[in-house]
Write a protein that binds this DNA or RNA. Structure first.
Length: 298
DNA sequence: ATCCAGGATGTAT
DNA sequence: ATACATCATGGA
């Protein structure tokens, strides 16, 4: 086992690990205390989080001004990639619109970083997200890893990587329904088959600009504009993407009514412009977390 | 019991 | 292009 740490003072704008990993943007991670998104979860500010990428296991916690990590390999490049440690959070925050809602969200969760998650796990997670709460989405992804993923040992614990497309393509619809996926089960299976068969892959969409990528992604089964936007933002690095979910839709009604245009594409462009064309998706993630956690009421 | 959750799909217009 | 019903499942 290798260990190390990243000094948070060296990260431009710092980091809030819990806000980053428990804001409903990434479903790649677990918590060692198994309390991810649980209502009775312990304070959690220094909880261990774990992830498996490319058969390497990493666990990390935020403590004493550091990101402390233990891993099967040097975790620093992995953390830098997944947690976007190279983003200048101060510079990004400076592009946020100066209104009460965005300002409050940044004051509450300063240090929240966008993630840079792998393509296929993000695609599946957000297919599963339809009409689901974040806690159950996370539980569904953990179940998929446990049932169909490859185990990796780290110290005395076993973690599981997200299943390869072939593994989910080979799963039966009944197997997936047993994990609580409901009507999303055939969506996940059919989309996994499309990726496994090479019908439409990350390579095909990564070369496209943002809106073209979003349109292409809707070719997957179970992927509409909103889920495609989540893949664009959290996996493909299109930081201007603003997924229009129920929370953002209501935020538009309450705070940006002039951005409501009656259809997804035009409303998306309007709110993107309002939030700033370069980092609209970054600011959106702060708003989503702020609104969803009810921090606005306290 | 009824409503809701990071919506998408099939069908009718 | 837009409007509508339908789709599982668990928690409040």
């Amino acid at each position: 086992m290798k260990t190390g740490h990243v000094r948070i003072a060296d990260l431009p704008g710092g980091i809030d690990l819990q806000a980053t990993l428990e804001s409903g943007q990434s479903y790649l991670w677990g918590r060692d205390d198994d309390a991810l998104y649980e209502a009775d979860a312990p304070a959690g500010s220094d909880a261990w989080y774990h992830v498996v990428v490319d058969d390497e296991a990493v666990r990390v916690r935020q403590r004493d001004g550091r990101l402390e990590w233990e891993a099967t390999t040097d975790a620093e490049p992995i953390l830098t990639d997944l947690l976007r440690l190279d983003d200048d959070l101060d510079a990004i925050a400076a592009t946020a619109p100066d209104d009460d809602l965005v300002r409050a969200a940044y004051e509450e969760f300063r240090g929240l970083r966008l993630v840079r998650d792998p393509f296929f796990p993000t695609l599946v997670a957000f297919i599963c997200s339809a009409q689901m709460r974040v806690g159950r989405i996370a539980a569904m992804q953990a179940a998929l890893r446990r049932e169909f993923g490859d185990p990796v040992e780290l110290d005395d614990r076993t973690y599981y990587g997200f299943p390869h497309p072939e593994a989910l393509a080979a799963a039966s619809e009944a197997d997936l329904r047993d994990l609580g996926l409901g009507y999303r089960a055939p969506y996940v299976r059919d989309t996994a088959a499309m990726v496994a068969d090479g019908d439409l892959t990350e390579g095909d969409v990564s070369a496209l600009d943002y809106e073209a990528a979003r349109d292409a992604l809707t070719e997957f089964v179970g992927v509409g504009d909103k889920v495609a936007d989540c893949v664009c933002l959290f996996a493909l690095g299109h930081l201007e993407a603003v997924p229009l979910d129920t929370w953002i839709q209501s935020a538009i009604e309450d705070h940006y009514p002039d951005c409501a245009r009656g259809n997804y594409a035009d409303t998306s462009r309007a709110i993107r412009s309002r939030l700033g064309d370069d980092y609209a998706g970054y600011h959106q993630t702060y708003l989503f977390h702020y609104l969803r956690t009810g921090a606005a009421e306290s």
